[in-house]
């Protein structure tokens, strides 16, 4: 049993079959990449995992519990954190304040009224946040307004905000999309480090083959809403079906 089990998931948008009979099993403490050409249903699948979409049929089990019908914040509380394609951070807040929100969510749950205590008195949370910022080399930016940072830094911050919650599963939606090569390599290094130092499962949706092959333990290839193959990276590279899907000869 994997930590994430997707069984026979179907999703239709009107006449379009976005996902058909998707089965996926992500094993604990592995990096599992989901690749596929545009329109393969990667994002739809991800949205079904985080509660943004509900599949028409099938089941999604995380850590032995179904995530179907749960709201995004409930799914996060179960231990899934996600990184968006374009970094989603709290632009109005400083880097440190950005880090405090996930920590508060982790400690206090989806809602708890702390209206009078001062945020400065949350020593434990501040320490944890500082440690995390050190880990991602952002401690010198702690008082910076997050909206004014570079895209690479925003991505780094978003990653840190997810990691500081110690999620069981980290979902990455094209984490290097639109990044310069140098930023992409930084992100790869960061992810490698995360993988090496933490007990964490990562599911990654990615276009960039360089990223996929330098990180993934297992790869699922999705095409036209169906998984074509699931295998080790070295077997995926030369797989005829994959080449077909990417070069469009299937049509």
């Amino acid at each position: 049993m994997g930590i994430l089990e997707v069984k026979d998931v179907n999703k239709r948008f009107g006449g379009l079959k976005a996902l058909s009979d998707v089965n996926l099993s992500v094993q604990e403490n592995t990096v599992h990449a989901i690749i596929g050409p545009n329109g393969a249903g990667k994002s739809t699948l991800l949205n079904c995992l985080v509660g943004k979409l509900i599949p028409d049929t099938g089941s999604v089990m995380f850590d032995g519990k179904s995530v179907l019908g749960r709201k995004p914040f409930e799914i996060n509380q179960m231990g899934i954190s996600r990184v968006f394609q374009t970094p989603e951070i709290f632009g109005n807040l400083t880097v440190m304040e950005n880090m405090m929100i996930p920590l508060l969510a982790k400690r206090d749950g989806a809602y708890r009224l702390h209206a009078i205590e001062s945020i400065d008195h949350e020593k434990d949370l501040v320490e944890t946040a500082e440690q995390m910022l050190k880990d991602v080399n952002m401690i010198d930016k702690r008082n910076m307004h997050s909206a004014s940072m570079s895209r690479g830094d925003k991505r780094r911050l978003e990653m840190a905000m997810c990691l500081v919650q110690n999620p069981k599963l980290l979902l990455l939606d094209e984490p290097t999309a639109g990044m310069a090569r140098a930023d992409t390599n930084n992100t790869i290094d960061l992810l490698k480090e995360i993988k090496a130092t933490r007990d964490i499962t990562i599911a990654i949706i990615e276009h960039d083959m360089h990223v996929v092959f330098s990180l993934a333990d297992r790869i699922t290839v999705l095409a036209q809403g169906t998984p074509l193959v699931e295998d080790l990276p070295e077997n995926i590279k030369g797989h005829p079906k994959v080449q077909e899907a990417y070069l469009g000869e299937a049509h």
Binding site: K71, F73, Q77, E88, N92, I101, P102, A105, K106, Q165
Partner: peptide, 13 residues
């Protein structure tokens, strides 16, 4: 005010 979407995916309602 800043980003409700991020907040939801960060575990707060």
């Amino acid at each position: 005010k800043s980003n409700q979407n991020r907040l939801r995916y960060t575990g707060m309602n």
